[in-house]
Computed example of a mutant assay.
Amino acid sequence: MQEIFDLLIRNASIVDGTGAPRFAGDIGIRGDRIARIGDLSKLRGALEIDLAGRIAAPGFIDAHTHDDRFMLSNPDMTPKVSQGVTTVIGGNCGVSLAPMPRPIPDPVTPPLNLLDGEGEWFRFPSFAAYLEALRSAPAATNCAMLVGHTTLRVATMDDLTQPATAAEIDAMRKLVDAAMRAGAIGVSTGLFYEPAIAAPTEEIIEICRPLKEFNGLYCTHMRDEADRVIDSL
């Protein structure tokens, strides 16, 4: 019996992501899995697409995005999927949509307004609640999310012009621990931005201590991108 695929992509120039040279071939798909790759010229698919030599490649990962809100408000993710992006990393530069266990300041403190200038999307008291919203109405892309240090400061501190107190550091560290348990992949900082400029290195170290248990990532946005960029590096 002739093998039938749900989708058969013919005459592709395949770049498989391994670093190997591209090669000509066909791709047979069943359900949501690639079943076979190679010369499938004698096989058939319920739906067939002839790429006529165009490239077929694994989906791209956009590692630096601020799509935290966009995945909820525009789940079709057209700006990304139209470019072949299938996974986005959000929560960069110290800016994440969650956790926000108290009302967001009005007006929204920059750079948090990168995600939502009106503040209505900063509605998730915990990172778990935010991730659940993403899961309940999945966007067209996959995602992996960081917790933003600036968001943590806004959520726990009354005076952002000062280093965090021991009690504020403890509160932020607990939010990081909860976020990591919920599924966050790490913490990002935006130390060049006004709400986090006053944070000393020791504050970052103490807040990020939960990352060790989860093998989490620390993603830095340097303290200076201008005249002191070399010092920052």
Rank of each mutant, 00 (worst) to 15 (best):
A63S: 13
E118I: 02
A20T: 12
D224P: 07
G25V: 01
R181C: 12
S188H: 01
N74E: 14
M71V: 08
L152E: 01
F214C: 05
F127P: 00
M222C: 14
R123V: 14
L7K: 02
D177G: 13
Q162Y: 07
A196R: 02
P107I: 08
T189M: 05
I205W: 08
I4A: 01
A199N: 08
P110K: 11
I49Y: 05
G190K: 03
S82M: 10
L217F: 14
A155I: 04
H221K: 09
D116P: 13
T151W: 05
F60N: 02
I14G: 01
L152I: 11
I49Q: 12
L146A: 01
P195L: 06
G216N: 03
M157N: 04
P79G: 11
G31V: 05
S41K: 00
A140G: 09
V154A: 09
T151G: 12
I207H: 04
I197P: 00
G31R: 07
I89L: 15
V88F: 03
S126E: 04
I104C: 15
K174V: 11
F192W: 06
D6T: 03
A12G: 11
R54H: 12
N142Y: 11
A140V: 06
S41V: 00
T78G: 09
L217M: 13
K42W: 00
D106F: 11
H64D: 07
R30F: 02
I37F: 07
H64I: 10
A226C: 05
L43N: 00
G84T: 12
Y218C: 00
L131C: 08
G190N: 01
I185Q: 11
L8T: 01
S73M: 13
P125Q: 10
T156I: 06
I197S: 05
L175Q: 15
A24S: 15
E213H: 13
P210C: 11
A171W: 06
P99K: 05
I185W: 13
P163F: 02
I61A: 03
E202I: 12
L175N: 10
A129K: 06
D26T: 01
R36F: 04
R36Y: 03
I204T: 15
A167N: 07
D116T: 08
A182H: 06
Q83H: 14
V176I: 13
R135Y: 11
A98K: 10
I230P: 00
H221F: 09
T201V: 14
V88H: 00
G53P: 03
L114P: 00
N74I: 00
P200K: 07
S188G: 12
E194R: 14
G25E: 01
P105Y: 09
V229R: 13
A166H: 12
R223L: 06
H66A: 09
M71E: 05
L115K: 09
I89P: 08
E202D: 15
A198G: 14
V147N: 07
D68Q: 08
E202W: 06
A56C: 12
M222G: 03
E202Q: 15
P75W: 04
H66K: 07
A98E: 08
T86F: 05
I29H: 10
E120Y: 10
R123C: 14
M172A: 04
M172Y: 11
R181Y: 00
D68E: 12
P200M: 04
R228P: 03
G25S: 04
V176K: 00
T165R: 02
V154N: 09
D16N: 14
G117Y: 01
S73Q: 11
T220G: 02
I34W: 03
I169A: 04
I37N: 00
